[in-house]
Design a protein around this nucleic acid. Sequence first.
DNA 1: TCGAATTTGTGCGTATGTATT
DNA 2: AAATACATACGCACAAATTCG
Lengths: 264, 264
Amino acid sequence: MTTLVGPGWSANAGDETTPPTAIRGSGLALWRQIAGDIERAIADGTLAPGARLPTEAEFARRYAVNRHTVRRAMEELARDGQVRVEQGRGSFVAEDVLDYEVSARTRFSEWIRRHDREPSGRVLSLATMPAPRAIAEALGIETGGAMVRLERLGLADGRPVSLAQHHFAIARFPGIAAALTAHGTISAALASLGVADYFRRVTRVSARAPRPEEAALLETSRSRPLLVTENVNVDAEGRVVEFGLSRYPTPRVQIIFEPGSETT
Amino acid sequence: MTTLVGPGWSANAGDETTPPTAIRGSGLALWRQIAGDIERAIADGTLAPGARLPTEAEFARRYAVNRHTVRRAMEELARDGQVRVEQGRGSFVAEDVLDYEVSARTRFSEWIRRHDREPSGRVLSLATMPAPRAIAEALGIETGGAMVRLERLGLADGRPVSLAQHHFAIARFPGIAAALTAHGTISAALASLGVADYFRRVTRVSARAPRPEEAALLETSRSRPLLVTENVNVDAEGRVVEFGLSRYPTPRVQIIFEPGSETT
DNA sequence: TCGAATTTGTGCGTATGTATT
DNA sequence: AAATACATACGCACAAATTCG
């Protein structure tokens, strides 16, 4: 069957030489032919993950079928998880989700590389400020005590996947601001201050709607929630090194936890 | 200072005998007096967790100050995490969050009891249906194979905290539907079928906006995302017992991971 | 789906008291 | 004593988010 081809499945808008018609009475239901068509386009990459599908009305016009027939096909694909249908927005090819496996030793670049993507990052700000109560408690200092906050956007293959704030107590690391400026990574900065290694102790996960700035930085819609994690990193002796607050765009990023075994 | 008292801090609307006025020129800034006032009311329980505070305009009227002055006080309290301010909705006393600690052995009632609340539940539906692809894969059966879905609303002290779907393969447990009907809990039903114990293997966490029905059941706003977890439970031999999909209302429920140690 | 009402968020300008230089 | 800086407080207007009919 000649199908819908070209950039974004919209090239042959005026192309009437190869009508993308489903064959009636072929023994295969029209909606199955259409579903198969789209499925093939997804499989062979004609339709990239995250790409927007033509509207149901558009499909109906192209295949010269009723919209109900198209819907039947979309239902099937949605049930299979191949497309995602969103009322009022449109239909989209299911995106690859980037699994964020929480473990004791989690580093941003290692995480991204494990998924065969290229990690990069952009420092948004580095500032010294008094610690709000919640952060001060996590860092083990007094409320209002001086801390450094590093805000960083993490990217995988150039697409933003995390927006993180890292907090360090000045009392614990007087030279942290300079070290973070001098070194490219947090690990390196901490290493220069004598912290050879550090581990994740607790991770709290919640979710909330993004603020406009967050949505813009993470290139996500304001209507999609962010996964928000808070975590405490400690050194080998169990002393608190850092308090981190990270935001991840759903559904692009998912968090995975695999308990060792009997943890309770 | 005579302050705002009475039920919900709104009793003395017409009470002019004890004007809740902040003292000017007392050496303590007005906004600090107001912040302290509210802080005390929260500490002594006059303002319960989750309770709505009077509006900024109302505070300004009662204290006979400008709204900016009230806002300054609220800022301080919000920074401290004592109140939660939401544009367009109002301000609220910070709520106790129910921490859901993910571990290998997690049972609903144990979770709730550990937080000194009374667990209860309501079965919403119990049905046999063909397994969609994603669930079939998790259960290790063919797509379309028969499965039982139990949908259940979990409550803590009568407030909904989880909405869970539990899926069991009929091929593995032919008598599961009857067993679930006969026994009050999933553990008991599985025990009657020879599964003495089971463990959580993986947990995936994401977030999305609630559907209207979910929002209603969980008594949450449609504008607040749900935390969504998917998990696979296995028996002592590692065979898949159940695939679960749970939804938790934010920010009432938070998920906590504490990796044992080097899990990477 | 839309608009009105409610509530918080932000910006501007102004004034005043207090502490520092 | 004068100049300056800073914190506090007020008034007004409008923006943005939420809720509800």
